[in-house]
């Protein structure tokens, strides 16, 4: 039988065992999570079907000018002359005068295409994501205007401030290689797997 070494104490043995157990625990947990890693990265996006255009996107983003912007899906747009996303509900005239516009920053550009159709473009540098046009378009139009996180601007906070303040839980994490939830394009897209946590 080998002689017990003089520096082998009960306390030392216990300490070493505990140390080894903790190391094994941390590496085991890491390996388990590593094995489950499905996609490289997720980013935040707004599900337009859930969004109620409450206006929180304009104020809750950590950026001074929100990373959320209105987008226009042209294929869905009715190109209406009397656009309820562009014009004030009670316009003085049907023209591009600022007093007739719904957008507080004049971020929607109205371009004549042909009688009686007008194209509406979002000037992203002006859009503050207040959602006024989204509400207007959704209420009486086709809903071709809706809010999306613009990833050239988003800082990708771990805990998105807007997501935490979103009244409809419309924010969710989506794969970074497919980072938009555009209306009209989602038939070809599987339903999001990752659930939004706010």
């Amino acid at each position: 039988m080998p002689q017990p070494q003089p520096n082998l104490t009960r306390r030392g043995l216990f300490g070493n065992g505990l140390w080894a157990a903790v190391v094994a625990g941390i590496t085991g947990l890491s390996a388990y999570l590593f094995g489950r890693t499905k996609q490289a990265k997720t980013v935040w996006q707004i599900d337009p079907d859930k969004c109620v255009a409450c206006g929180n996107c304009a104020t809750y983003c950590v950026l001074e000018l929100s990373a959320v912007k209105c987008v226009q899906v042209y294929a869905m747009c009715g190109y209406c002359d009397l656009c309820t996303g562009y014009l004030d509900p009670d316009p003085k005239k049907l023209d591009t005068g600022a007093e007739n516009e719904l957008c507080p920053t004049g971020a929607i550009e109205r371009v004549f295409v042909e009688d009686p159709y007008f194209e509406y473009n979002i000037k992203e540098e002006l859009c503050i994501a207040c959602g006024k046009c989204v509400k207007g378009c959704e209420a009486f139009g086709n809903g071709s205007l809706f809010l999306q996180v613009r990833h050239d601007r988003c800082l990708r906070c771990n805990e998105c401030s807007i997501a935490a303040a979103c009244p409809s839980q419309a924010f969710r994490r989506v794969p970074a290689d497919d980072p938009y939830l555009l209306k009209g394009a989602k038939e070809s897209k599987p339903a999001g797997e990752s659930k939004g946590i706010a």
């Binding site: 990265k41 899906v73 042209y74 209420a139 050239d152």
Partner: peptide
């Protein structure tokens, strides 16, 4: 609106050769 899922104003058939612009999708940084 979402329940009916019909377009109130179908996209027009343009007589001029107008083509629909595509919505830009800037990728994440």
């Amino acid at each position: 609106a979402p329940l009916l899922a019909v377009e109130r104003f179908p996209p027009p058939d343009f007589e001029t050769n107008y083509s629909f612009p595509t919505t830009t999708v800037p990728p994440p940084r």
